[in-house]
Design a protein around this nucleic acid. Structure first.
Lengths: 147, 147
DNA sequence: AACCGCCTGCAATTGCATTGCATTGTTTAG
DNA sequence: CTAAACAATGCAATGCAATTGCAGGCGGTT
């Protein structure tokens, strides 16, 4: 049992490691931890969340870690209107247009932001000569847990 | 001709005045000017825009003017992801759910934000137990003018 | 005319995002 | 194996937008 867990944990690290490598991100200890945290969360995480999870780590380093993840397409950022940017893992193989193409939900009760990857942003018929490059749809209300 | 313009200007002020009164906002000089400016713009305005238009006015007063307009339902705010909040007139008779129900467009070239009141945000079929209260859809790209 | 409340202006502060720089750690070329 | 080159980290400082406190001023009411 113990052994199995250790092996699983090792495997997980291997996987996270691979995730980073695949995106050309050097797998440092901090980054592995950050990535582990992000992927363990059901909701999008803010810099403050990360900071709270690793209170011994430097805020700036965490900030740059998130920025790096975003640049390399490992996570995407979400502006949910709370004033602090949230980050969530990109889907496998997604070339994430900056501000992704799926819907995000912000719960007014628990104040968490979640990705709804199965819900794509509908195509909107823009006026003549308008060209769409990105889109961001944030729905606010109460989430399944809070209802 | 001159006389007609004067009369039209007077009428306009009367109209703006009425707009304010209807929303229970006391029509001070500053507010009339701010409202005139906002309604003369084709695009949503930020606090900085207002500040630039009235460089003799106090930034804080302009800030509070916008806040008052928003509270009273005269304008709605738009978070377009630029980091500064934009404001635009609400449609006649709209009870503007905070973060309105129409689509907004942000042009990556001219960096202006515009309302597209004729384009309603489509209804999204949320997962079980999720309740929608508001929604914000911002499309980014290049606008008609910039193409 | 006196009172009261809203509006305005100035000062100061918060909060999040961002950059500069020196140090440490890791990779790579010789 | 070592040194140079580069990347990541930690600390300090700054930028920028939003926000609040307070005092004075103005308008409207009694």
């Amino acid at each position: 049992m113990r052994a199995a867990m250790v092996i699983n944990y090792r495997n997980m690290l291997k996987n996270l490691d691979k995730l980073l490598q695949d995106k050309n991100i050097r797998p440092t200890a901090m980054r592995l931890l950050a990535l582990e945290y992000i992927s363990s969360q059901q909701t999008a995480v803010s810099l403050s969340d990360l900071e709270a999870a690793f209170h011994r780590a430097d805020r700036i380093t965490l900030y740059r870690t998130l920025k790096t993840f975003e640049e390399k397409g490992l996570v995407h950022s979400i502006m949910d209107g709370t004033g602090s940017v949230k980050y969530a893992l990109c889907e496998e193989g997604c070339e994430c247009a900056p501000e992704d193409l799926h819907v995000h939900f912000f719960c007014n009760k628990c104040r968490e932001t979640i990705c709804l990857p199965m819900l794509r942003i509908p195509k909107i018929p823009l006026p003549d000569n308008f060209k769409q490059e990105e889109a961001s749809l944030v729905i606010k209300g109460t989430c399944g847990r809070c209802n």
